[in-house]
Design a protein around this nucleic acid. Structure first.
Lengths: 340, 340
DNA sequence: CATAATAATGACTTCGAATGCAATGTTAAA
DNA sequence: TTTAACATTGCATTCGAAGTCATTATTATG
């Protein structure tokens, strides 16, 4: 029973009557080995069930071939899609994803500590809680970092972002074309950079049309918080004619709250727009007007940027932006004149 | 600039005037070191920014501390929830998740090969494509495997499952109590074991009420395939009064198709039930009657089972079942008498 | 104060693959 | 046939932490 012992390159070498170096060379592409030895080694390796030990390889190569991916559990984005696409891209570069999830900001230090011990080749951060300080820790250890959908003002960290400003401008312009003047913004959580970017993006776009002092209610990106936001706003304010939401889930919450609890028709009485282009936004019951993020391009860009930095450590950080795509559903209608 | 060189235990030892062994011992809990050396080492370690190298540790410990998690991209289940919960449980045992995604069954061999080289401590498989043969490969290398929501008939592999039969019985019993006699089953893909389990579960439960030969349409677990299923069935068959769907996404697709395209009211004209209890099933527009899986218990059970097998390699495989919880929404109504 | 018992320490080896270097073997060219 | 050029090969070392073992320092006991 060879069951309890792993098969090493030495075992194969002994059985095949060659040196351990020879075995190693057979399993390393692009090294010169004679056809005879290669065959001998491959045959015995197969017979013994030998597989190169990735751990030992990591140690000698000074590179783990692993990418740390950090996700907040309370993620705004299309978590499953993004993660799975990222993983696919990373696999294309023959690297693996080591996954870290984050509940609270306070855990962050522990997670960074962990990541550093694992000698990962790079880090992709899909999380709002990520101060520049934290990134510096990775920089000190020469570990490149790419932020996904989050940018640092001084561009000292590479990032791949959807252009929130441009996306919100498209949405706002559309609403203004439909003669809306009374708005409500349902923003994301205070500590999320994406939320801030989308909020200021909306405000800037509205201001361009002379619309100012728009009320803001904060949610936490969840469906329930969208419902709650509309509900609490209507308690002590006039109903808006259009609601701009920081993401699709909250927008859907707003639509359901409006229809079921407030007896408002969407879009006839209330127009609602979201952001992200999650699959549920296209469902017949909602047909949400939203801006979809080009997730597959963005994940590819993120991984390409990261791999580039891994291979050229002295390259400067790079920020790449992607425009969103306006998806016109059926959640926006022309404001009724009596509301003007 | 210590930037280009990693700090090793030797560096710390030299600086602190102790041996490398001493440094190692300070970072390994439960080993005897004098307070004096500990302090000296910790101080210089901190100054130099030393962190134990997890890779070297893995090699000498003969254990990577990593768990491979395999997910199908086309997953039926609550992918984000399950993955994030799994990760949390695994982190509690001080291990990490190495992520592998699977597109097609053909990739499987390559992925298994990969996993074996990484010397993972165990495997959690969240995927339909996973033949017993594949599991045997892990068994040969003494790597324990736990299947999530998939069981092997002979119980030779550990698994954690939601009890599909029982869940479907609850749903069918509910529908029968509402006097439904004409059914449609929207099943999952042919090659998914969960799909098969749910289909036969539904058929068994219906048979107990003497209902036989229920038409079956297959979908791929997506919203669109739910729409498509209802649409194509109504082309050449009498409308059913109740539709039993293999998962919530398809059930929601059926509801939207019925309401928007077929001018059927749900639940008045058509009752629909799903399975999984995804968050969208509770949204006001749907209020789907479904069976929710106890995801947090199941993920905990999966990890506990796996860790137990890692620590006691000679334990027999263990299968654990969890009952689902019936969630009564508003998608089931009493069958109208003219339909009887 | 001597001796036993225990704690702390360092030298050295281990894990498994990769590689620089030197020593072969092979083929080509003169 | 001789020499040069090149392809294979194995030896020995490396990566960084952990643990064995023997040795030394410290404390406890008679």
């Amino acid at each position: 029973m060879s069951k309890n012992k792993r098969v090493t390159s030495y075992d194969v070498a002994r059985e095949a009557g060659v040196s351990q170096s020879a075995v190693s060379r057979v399993f390393r592409p692009g090294v010169s080995v004679s056809e005879k030895t290669r065959e001998k080694v491959l045959k015995t390796a197969d017979r013994l069930g030998y597989r190169p030990n990735a751990i030992a390889r990591m140690l000698i190569n000074q590179s783990s071939g692993m990418i740390a991916v950090i996700v907040s559990s309370r993620a705004n984005l299309n978590f499953p899609d993004v993660l799975s696409l990222l993983n696919k891209q990373i696999a294309l570069h023959n690297k693996r994803v080591l996954l870290f999830t984050l509940d609270e900001a306070e855990q962050l230090d522990g997670v960074i500590e962990q990541i550093l011990t694992y000698q990962v080749d790079g880090v992709v951060a899909l999380t709002a809680h990520f101060e520049v300080e934290s990134v510096k820790q990775f920089a000190q250890h020469n570990i490149p970092v790419v932020l996904y959908n989050r940018e640092v003002p001084d561009h000292s960290v590479s990032s791949v972002c959807c252009n929130h400003d441009q996306g919100l401008k498209m949405l706002v312009d559309l609403l203004v074309r439909h003669h809306h003047r009374r708005y409500l913004i349902v923003a994301g959580p205070q500590d999320s950079d994406v939320a801030t970017a989308r909020l200021t993006g909306a405000q800037k776009a509205l201001l361009q049309h002379g619309i100012d002092n728009v009320p803001v209610v904060r949610g936490d990106y969840s469906y329930e918080s969208g419902q709650q936001a509309l509900h609490s706003h209507l308690q002590n304010a006039m109903a808006p004619t259009a609601v701009i939401c920081a993401n699709d889930a909250m927008a859907i919450g707003v639509i359901d709250e409006a229809r079921e609890k407030q007896q408002l028709r969407v879009p006839e009485d209330l127009s609602v727009v979201g952001f992200d282009g999650i699959s549920a936004s296209a469902w017949y019951s909602y047909r949400l007007t939203t801006v979809s993020q080009p997730t597959s391009y963005m994940t590819k860009a993120a991984v390409d940027t990261l791999v580039n930095l891994i291979e050229n450590p002295h390259n400067p950080p790079e920020s790449r932006y992607w425009p969103g795509t306006l998806i016109e559903g059926n959640s926006v209608a022309t404001a009724r004149s009596e509301d003007e």
